[in-house]
């Protein structure tokens, strides 16, 4: 039978453990949402490699896997002989469906920064846009469509629009759940 002293110690340890767990959960929610079901970067890369090999097996030469402008997704180019555009499109789409789409959606989708991490990234996004010549946007904005409209107002293929969309691509995860560009 436990003494009062032992019971006190037991409850103290339990309280500390619960406190640490709550603190840990709070720390997680401060930076980003729950990633427990998300494939790892290695699993995502493997899916891209399988897709690349699949396109190669379909008879097309492929380039090396490279980081996309967003800094997180991966891409590879496919050599495209004259008149083979439709065949390349069909081959890539079939290979993507078989090896990549599900993993990529789970890996890249639903990334939402919160708290200080979001505030910092939002400031970096606005700075990036200002460096691209796009001014007047607020770090308090929560609707990405406002930013997209402002960027595209500079005109298709304008240097501002091209650079602005690159900024948006790098900071997609600043937009909250349910946002048009980051549901």
């Amino acid at each position: 039978m436990r003494t009062r002293k032992q019971l006190s110690k037991h409850w103290l340890l339990t309280a500390v453990a619960v406190g640490l767990a709550v603190s840990s959960m709070a720390a997680c929610s401060e930076g980003a949402d729950d990633d427990s079901d998300r494939p790892t970067a290695a699993e995502y890369r493997q899916a891209v490699e399988l897709t690349r090999s699949c396109v190669e097996d379909a008879g097309f030469s492929v380039g090396p896997i490279a980081e996309a402008p967003d800094g997180i997704s991966l891409q590879f180019s496919i050599d495209t002989p004259e008149g083979a555009e439709a065949d390349v499109d069909a081959a890539y789409s079939a290979c993507e469906e078989e090896h990549l789409l599900e993993v990529a959606t789970a890996y890249l989708g639903g990334r939402h920064l919160t708290g200080e991490a979001r505030e910092q990234a939002m400031q970096e996004l606005v700075d990036c846009l200002e460096n691209a010549g796009i001014t007047g946007l607020s770090v308090a904005e929560t609707d990405s469509r406002v930013f997209v409209r402002a960027i595209m107002d500079y005109g298709e293929d304008s240097p501002e629009a091209s650079a602005g969309l690159l900024c948006m691509d790098r900071y997609r995860d600043v937009w909250p759940p349910g946002d048009a560009n980051n549901p």
């Binding site: 380039g63 996309a68 997704s73 991966l74 891409q75 590879f76 180019s77 496919i78 050599d79 495209t80 002989p81 004259e82 555009e85 390349v88 499109d89 890539y92 993507e96 990549l100 789409l101 990529a104 959606t105 890249l108 989708g109 048009a180 560009n181 549901p183």
Partner: peptide
């Protein structure tokens, strides 16, 4: 000549 595709994005 080369072709590239982005990952699908939900919009």
């Amino acid at each position: 000549t080369a072709t590239v595709y982005t990952t699908g994005q939900s919009l």
